[in-house]
Amino acid sequence: MGILEVKNVNKRFGGLQALGNVNLSVAENTVHAIIGPNGAGKSTLLNVLVGKLIPDTGSVMFDGKSVLGRAPYEINQMGISRVFQTPEIFGDLTVMENMMIPCFAKRDGAFELNPLASVGKQTDIVERAEQMLIDMKMIDKRHMHAASMSRGDKRRLEIGMCLSQQPRLLLLDEPTAGMARADTNNTIDLLKQIKAERDITIAIIEHDMHVVFSLAERITVLAQGTPLVEDTPDKIKGHPKVREAYLGESA
């Protein structure tokens, strides 16, 4: 029984069957990649997992509890953090403030009315955010405006913000899309380091095979909304069905 269990999920947009009978099981403390050609339904599946879309049929269980019908913030509070394709951070705020917000969310929950408390006096939050910035090697940038950072740094910050919540499942949506090779390799190293240091399950949706084969322990191949195969990276590499899905029948 995995930490995330997707059973018989179907999602239809008008005449398009975006997801057809998707079954997926992500085992705890593994890195599980979901790959597939354009239009395979990867993003739809991800949006179902985080509560943005509700599937027509099927069930999604996280840690034994259903996530369906819950708002994104509730699903996050259950322990699923999401990293976006384009880094979603609080651009108007400083790096330190960015890091403190998820720490507050973890400590105080979805809403806390404390208009007379002082941010600077929440020593536990300040310490935790600073530690996370040290871990992410960003402590020297703490006073910087988040929007003024490079794309690689924004990605780093976003991953750090997600980790500071100590999620049980980290969802990554094409984390290296549009990145230069050097930034891509940095991100791979960062994710490897995260995996080595923490008890965390990572589910990653990715286009870049280099990233997938560097990180993943299990791979699910999605094509036309349905999982084709699920196996270890070595087996996937040579799988005829996968080649067919990616390169067409003639290959």
Binding site: A71, Y73, F84, F90
Partner: peptide, 13 residues
């Protein structure tokens, strides 16, 4: 004001 999307996905309502 800065980013409601990130806020929702950070467990904040």
């Amino acid at each position: 004001k800065s980013n409601q999307q990130r806020m929702n996905y950070t467990g904040l309502s």
